[in-house]
Nucleic acid binder design. Structure first.
Length: 673
DNA sequence: GGATGTGAAGTTTTT
DNA sequence: CTTCACATCC
């Protein structure tokens, strides 16, 4: 990041590239062209669904480069790795791999990691901090609860996790949380938050939210770093701006606040992450925050046929607070949106699968043309069953990731412990896996000792002989185990990563543990494949990274949600099942939007919590995924939480047709507080 | 220290 | 209905 703007790149941009760019810009519609060529000052690009948003950002980067900016001066921020990768590839296609490489394109989180590794010392951050993923976070929270003697039944760790994350994404410190706490529970949450943070600091760890928070703190406190960053990144671009939370906004202000060359692209109508801290007010108030901002609306949609966009426009028009856009189809007329109400969820699944098999029989559609979209992940079950019965290949997006598999997490814990002997979470995970005679009682005693003495858990284990009442064999086993770990972690294997991982596996005889834990030979083989897949990842990392180390490998794993090879293979020609949230940004020729009922979409909790507007945006996102065909379904009777009950069509279905709901119809009522 | 049974609770998810 | 955490038993 501190690297000087190297102007060593190609002396003269090839004339061919310049001509190509002129051709591309000429082919844009007038609004897109304005968005591309307005380079100075704050710019808000309101990009409706399917309006060529990524094209605008990438061509804008090419335009900036062709008009005097150096690649080093450009910063493009995204929220997901997927978006970052796509942007990088498309920029490379426009300006050539060489210059594209020098443009900083990345997720907010990846940007912050780099910033903190290079400059974090200014706020006392150790350069070798570890990054916790969400299951590490959960384990750390359980530890904090244990130390505070709060039973997990009183404060559910996963609920605590999202509450703390939400507070962090609103820039609330544990002290703020304690000040604001007005009841017993809130006080406990604040205390757990404080203890959790304290433990992370002690183990030199940060969670995902901390990456943003520390970056903000660094740029607030160190004028030198702030000024250097602002001087380097003269042009800042942000994708999916409607998803920005408080720390991300703050970060942007700190980098681009002085020169104001900030271009944000987003769609307030697709803001669906309010529940995790994304603040739609940031995009609604951009013109106020950055006075004199130019605003461009992209309303021509290149994705969907007219009837689909008409439905989308009518639904979203019911939201009171928005910038206001109306999508126009570049594709023209098409088949009308189909709405069906069937008996129950089984019939709903049969309806969709029947349609899929019929269309496939015609030979004009393939499995990958179809997507089934739903509000809640639990709805997938019925569709999975129906697809299986008809032998239609499908993939369920979300669900358990490769890195959540037990064997993968176990092996990762070994690697992480070797890289960071203070990693308590990993230590506790594998201290007795494979079993080495260190039981729950022993561990509890060591934990109590660590808490009483105020020392790291790993140190307590190392001093096991000082702890009263521990069985001698357990003490020996612990010390032997820690000795092995220390020996492995003494030196970073660097390029020999793969061989080193194999040695770790052999040293701890993890194969034997897999054989022991899974008596069934088929699952045993499957589990072991998971371990081997991890070794593959390491191989890839060594091949791709410029200076691979154990730490860089572990970090790459935490920061990316990359699919395993096996998952990539199976994702080829299959029907896609996913939640509306994971569907954002995707498109399919034929979409089924299912379970469009009161209580589900909008969800009951959204109704009681007065967030129906966000549910309406979710409906809008669902509709606008469809290119040519959209089938919406709802049921008369649905089993929820074990009980079967009557389901009414969603209010959104009436809005979609521009009708008022019938008189007899009762939406779920907001609860009076 | 590990296997089996009982109980409660059950949107949305990326980094 | 089914998943996950916890308690109890061997």
């Amino acid at each position: 990041m501190a690297r000087r703007a190297a102007s060593a790149a190609s002396a003269a941009a090839p004339a061919a590239i310049a001509a190509e760019l002129a051709r591309i810009v000429a082919a844009l519609n007038p609004e897109q062209r304005t968005a591309v060529t307005t380079t100075e000052g704050p710019l808000l690009v309101l990009a409706g669904a399917g309006s060529g948003k990524t094209r605008v950002i990438t061509v804008r980067i090419a335009w900036l480069l062709a008009h005097g900016a150096t690649p080093e001066q450009l910063l493009a921020m995204t929220f997901t790795n997927r978006a970052a990768n796509e942007m990088r590839e498309r920029v490379a296609g426009l300006v050539g791999a060489e210059r594209a490489k020098a443009v900083t394109v990345g997720t907010f989180h990846a940007f912050c990691v780099r910033l903190l590794r290079e400059r974090g010392h200014a706020i006392g951050l150790p350069s070798r901090f570890a990054i916790c993923d969400s299951s590490d976070q959960l384990a750390a929270l359980k530890g904090a609860l244990r130390e505070l003697r709060i039973p997990e039944t009183t404060l559910h760790p996963s609920a605590l996790q999202s509450q703390i994350s939400l507070m962090k994404s609103k820039l609330l410190t544990p002290i703020d949380a304690l000040k604001q706490a007005d009841d017993r529970r809130a006080k406990q949450v604040a205390k757990a938050y404080a203890k959790y943070d304290e433990n992370l600091r002690r183990t030199r760890s940060v969670d995902f939210d901390d990456l943003l928070l520390f970056a903000v703190r660094l740029l607030r406190e160190s004028a030198k770093d702030r000024e250097e960053l602002a001087a380097r990144f003269r042009y800042v671009m942000v994708d999916e701006y409607q998803d920005t939370n408080a720390p991300q906004y703050e970060l942007l202000r700190l980098i681009a606040g002085a020169h104001r060359n900030l271009c944000v692209v987003g769609d307030d109508d697709q803001s669906i992450y309010g529940w995790r801290g994304a603040d739609v007010k940031k995009i609604l108030g951009f013109e106020r925050d950055f006075e004199g901002a130019a605003v461009v609306r992209l309303e021509t949609n290149y994705r969907s046929v007219e009837p689909i966009l008409e439905a989308a426009n009518r639904v979203i028009a019911c939201n009171p607070s928005r910038h206001g856009k109306t999508l126009r189809s570049a594709l023209g007329p098409g088949e009308p949106v189909v709405v069906k109400r069937v008996e129950d969820e089984t019939a709903e699944a049969d309806l969709a699968v029947r349609e899929i098999t019929d269309r496939m029989r015609e030979g004009l559609s393939r499995p990958k043309d179809f997507a089934i979209l739903f509000r809640a992940a639990t709805q997938a079950r019925a569709f999975e069953a129906a697809l299986r019965a008809k032998q239609v290949p499908y993939r369920l997006v979300g669900g358990m990731s490769f890195f959540d598999r037990k064997e993968v997490r176990d092996v990762l814990a070994y690697l992480r412990l070797a890289a960071n002997p203070d990693d308590e979470v990993s230590l506790l995970r594998i201290i007795n896996c494979p079993p080495r005679g260190i039981g729950k009682t022993t561990i509890d005693k060591a934990l109590a000792y660590a808490t009483a003495e105020g020392i790291p858990v790993a140190r307590a284990f190392r001093q096991a002989n000082a702890i009263a009442g521990l069985p001698a064999p357990a003490v020996e086993a612990m010390q032997a185990f820690l000795g092995k770990v220390a020996a492995l972690g003494a030196a970073d294997p660097g390029r020999d990563l793969v061989a080193w991982i194999r040695r770790v596996l052999a040293e701890f005889d993890y194969r034997a543990e897999v054989d022991r834990a899974y008596p069934d030979p088929a699952t045993r083989e499957e589990r072991w494949q998971g371990v081997l897949e991890l070794v593959n990842f390491a191989e890839n990392h060594v091949r791709r990274a410029s200076a691979p180390t154990l730490s860089s490998f572990l970090e790459a794993l935490v920061m990316s949600s990359e699919d395993s090879e096996e998952e990539k293979e199976s994702a080829r020609d299959v029907v896609t099942l996913m939640t509306l949230h994971s569907a954002k940004g995707l498109e399919f020729p034929r979409v089924f939007l299912v379970g469009v009922e009161e209580g589900l979409l909008p969800h009951v909790r959204a109704v009681t919590e007065n967030t129906v507007e966000e549910e309406r945006r979710l409906m809008y996102v669902g509709i606008t995924r469809a290119q040519r065909h959209l089938t919406i379904s709802c049921v008369k009777s649905r089993a929820r939480g074990g009980h079967r009950g009557e389901s009414m069509p969603s209010r959104f279905l009436y809005e979609m047709r521009g009708e008022a709901p019938p008189k007899m119809w009762r939406p779920c009522e907001p609860r009076e507080e």
